[in-house]
Amino acid sequence: MSTSVQIKQLTMVQAITDGMKAMLEEDESVLVLGEDVGTNGGVFRATEGLIELFGEERVIDTPLAESGIMGTSIGLSVNGFKPIVEMQFLGFIYPAFNQIMTHASRMRQRSKGRFTCPIVIRAPYGAGVKAPEIHSDSSEAMFTHIPGLKVVVPSNAYDAKGLLIASVEDPDPVLFLEPMRCYRSTKVEVPENKYTVELGKAEYVKNGEDVTLLTWGAMVGDVMKAVAPLEEKLGITCDVIDLRTLYPLDKDTIEESVKKTGRVVIVHEAPESGGLSGDIISVINDTSFFYLKAPIQKVTGFDTPVPVYSLEQEYLPSMEKIQYAVKTTLSY
C-alpha cells in the first residue's frame, strides 16, 4: 500500500495561506492576528478563507495598531498561544519595534525560559511592485541585529510553506519576510501535506565552479536571470545560494561554496550600509578568508530610503550591476 502525496501548483502567497491553514488545523493554540486578516483575507489575500474555516476567535481582525498587535501577542504567547501576526507591510512594523526589541526577543533571557514568546511575525517587504511610499522597505538587517529574534525570507512557494510551518513550530520569535514581488510571480509544486524547511539552512539554487552569489528574497530570481547569459555566453559557472534564513546565517553552506570558488558576490536590495552584506563578509572572513581570490563584491540598494516607485528600478540591484560584479571578481 502506498500513500501518495498530493501536489498542487501554488503561488507563494497561496503557499503561505496553505502553511497557516495547516498549522491552524493541527494546533489549537495557533492564532492569526492582524489588520484586515479576517473578513478581507488580508490586503494580499494571504489569509483568504481562514476566518471561514477557523472562526473569528482564531483569525482575528485587530484594531489598527502595530504595537498593540505585537504587545498583545506577547501576552497571548506567554500564556499558551502561538500567534501568527501579520504586519501589513514591513514598512509599517516600526511602531511595533519597541515591543519586538525590548520584550518579545528578550523575554526568554529575562526569565531564564520561564516566559517565552513563540510568535511568527509575517511581513510583506521589498521593492519592485510599484507600491506607494514606505510600502517597499527592506529593513531586514534592523531585525537580524536583535538578539533573540530569527529572521526568515523565502524566495519561492515551496520554501514559503515549509519555512512558515517551521517558524510556527519554532519555540522563539521569528520575523517571516515575504518578498512582495514573489507573491504571484510564479507557481511551483507544493505538497498538500504538512512539511517543514529547516530554519538556518541555505539552499543551492544552482551549482557552479567560478563565483558564489549569496542572496535572498526577490533577488534570488534576479540573480538567476543575471547569471544565465554569463554561463551561456562566457562559460562562467556560478553557485547561486538562497540564504533563506538571515539569522542565524548558514555558515557552513557559505563556507563550503566560498572555499570552492574563492570569488563572492553578495546581492541584497536593502541599503548598503548596515545591510546584511557586512555580516556575511564577516562569516567569510572567519571561515574562508585565505581561500578568497578576489575582493568580495556587493550589489545592494543605496543609503537612501527605498524610493517612491518612479525611482525604484534605479534603486534596485539590476541585472547589469550583478553581471558587472561577477565579472569584477573574475578580473583579479
Binding site: G75, L76, V78, N98, H103
Partner: peptide, 13 residues
C-alpha cells in the same frame, strides 16, 4: 509597554 502584555495574557485566559 506592559499594558499590552497584560491585555494579551488576560485575552489568552
Amino acid at each position: 509597554s506592559q499594558i499590552l502584555h497584560a491585555t494579551g495574557v488576560a485575552w489568552a485566559e
